[in-house]
Design a binder for these strands. Structure first.
Length: 486
RNA sequence: GGUCACGUGGCCGAGUGGCUAGGCAGUGGUCUGCAACACCAUCUACGGCGGUUCGAAUCCGUCCGUGACCUCCA
């Protein structure tokens, strides 16, 4: 079966056949986090979406180089001269070194994504580790006539660029509209045009993170690192560039312009944008505080939810929506996902235990083909899940003797379902010890033991305590009651 | 204000000219000591108004509503 992958290219707003630049190899760049605060669930959705895409590409036989950056150089707070480096600001507030902040939140980011069972990218470069490349890139852009130095800072000349190229092609904006809609900000005197964006910013005396450059002691502009690092590791042109929808403009638009200005060609063949996770109907956002942190979700320690959810339940919940659709987060939706997830897991378990027949009453090959069809259609995980549930229905029918399956089909289906659930969607079996379920179980056990003790049935109460201890759980009696640690 | 999306049944969420999405919840059965799981059956739908068409939830227009971007943001 020829597997033809179709993906939605946001550059052209069309679903097109995916044809990598080099056959069987895929270069993929995804904008990573700015590590100055806790990664929230909305951030995670994007990274989980692209993890699924990365996994799918690998599953379909592509060799993928997946580059995702860590933005640790800080971005400007705003476009004004007084703009303050976000990381430096936080550092001053917490009395820490900037790199301490970076380290803390980078480690946290990795831990959270690991909990969600994300695979690490093949290269995870940092902005601070590529200052030289960024300075070289700026020089190239200046040499090519698309950048100019002004008072120690360097800006990208959008008007010049737009004479021969099309600034706004990715986000569908017209430069006239942008000019009309641009605000009158103070401190823009250095720029020739309000739309011009910084490639290099001269650091103020207070600014902590700074590097020497031909223009000034300063730091790279917002959009530069991605162009520098994607070019270095994936080449002047590569297959896929991903990121959150909110980065489309201006960040990705600027990347297109920078890459084109530096290398004389459009950097990216396929742009993929993952949609937002909303909370209370609004985008999750650090700046507005409309966020939910993954750890709060895993522990149930927050004001929005009455209970904890396993990371795999959350991942399954996200997979039930298409990556290009807005997904609204709610307790009800998550509860439904949790039950559906259990049903899927039960089905998989049941499949392994079925008693085979000499004939299959359903076309298992067609079932498996439907899994492929879903993923090949722009990574349609909701359809994949629907098709998996159809398989579960069949499995349960066999289990109830209302349908039959051959041993061969049983093996094939089990392998395929495992492939698509574990490898493609990255959903692993939840471990009971990691869920709130263990505490529910312990509550029951402790109640039984309490009753036994009330009845002076110490044989039972001691049996429970000893067996629990053997399993690594310590039961502690106290005046206030009984608690456990495990 | 400009640009672009979206509006599907009680909830979440696919699909996109004719053919059951799926999950959760509900209802009636089967199973069970009682449950849970599972199975069978079943109910609730495509924002409003126009248009194109033999036929539209699906295409076009328009209105209403919501959101994203236009400032750092996944």
């Amino acid at each position: 079966m020829e597997k033809q992958l179709k993906i939605f290219n946001t550059l052209t707003s069309e679903k097109v056949l995916f044809e990598p630049i080099n056959k069987n190899f895929v270069g993929m760049y995804v904008c990573g986090p700015t590590v100055y605060s806790d990664v929230h669930l909305g951030n995670c959705r994007t990274f989980i979406s692209f993890d699924m895409i990365y996994r799918s590409l690998q599953f379909l036989g592509y060799k993928v180089r997946y580059v995702r950056n860590i933005t640790d150089a800080g971005h400007l707070e705003n476009d004004a001269d007084e703009g303050e480096d976000k990381i430096a600001k936080k550092a001053r507030l917490e009395q820490l070194e900037p790199m301490e902040i970076v380290q803390k939140y980078t480690v946290d980011f990795h831990e959270i994504l690991k909990a969600f069972n994300n695979l690490p990218p093949t290269i995870e470069p940092t902005a601070t580790g590529h200052i030289i490349e960024q300075i070289e890139l700026i020089q190239t852009i200046i040499d090519n006539g698309f950048g100019y130095e002004s008072n120690g800072s360097v800006y990208f000349d959008i008007e010049k660029y737009n004479k021969t190229e099309n600034y706004g092609e990715l986000s569908g904006r017209k430069i006239e509209d942008l000019i009309a809609g641009s605000r009158d900000l103070d401190g823009q005197s250095e720029k020739r045009n309000p739309l011009d964006f910084a490639l290099w910013k001269k650091a103020s005396p207070m600014h902590i993170m700074r590097w020497p450059s031909p223009w000034s002691d300063g730091f790279p502009g917002w959009h530069l690192e991605c162009t520098a690092m994607s070019t270095k590791y994936l080449g002047k042109q590569f297959d896929i560039h991903g990121g959150g929808m909110d980065l489309k403009f201006p960040h990705h638009e600027c990347e297109v312009a920078q890459g084109n200005a530096a290398n004389g060609k459009k950097p990216v063949k396929y742009w993929l944008h993952a949609n937002m996770l909303t909370l209370n109907g609004k985008k999750m956002s650090k700046s507005t505080g409309n966020t939910l942190l993954p750890r709060e979700l895993f522990s149930g320690d927050n004001n929005l939810l009455e209970k904890a959810y396993h990371p795999m339940v959350v991942r399954f919940f996200m997979m039930q929506a298409h990556y290009r659709s807005v997904l609204d987060f709610s307790s009800d939706a998550l509860n439904a996902a949790e039950k559906g997830f259990a049903k899927l897991n039960n089905g998989l378990e049941t499949l392994g235990k079925l008693v085979p027949s000499i004939k299959s009453s359903e076309d298992v090959d067609a079932m498996i083909a439907s899994f492929y069809t879903a993923i090949l259609d722009d990574f349609n995980t909701p359809i994949l899940i629907a098709n998996l549930f159809d398989a579960v229905k069949f499995i349960n029918s066999v289990n109830d003797k209302n349908a039959t399956i051959t041993a061969e089909d049983q093996t094939k289906l089990l392998a395929a379902m495992n492939d698509f659930i574990r490898q493609v969607m990255g959903i692993k079996n939840q471990s009971i010890a990691e869920t709130g379920k263990l505490s529910a179980v312990m509550d029951v056990i402790l109640e039984i033991r309490k009753n036994a003790r009330a009845n002076k049935d110490f044989a039972t109460s001691d049996l429970i305590r000893d067996k629990m201890l053997a399993a690594g759980i310590t039961i502690k009696d106290s005046r206030e009651g009984t608690s456990w640690e495990g």
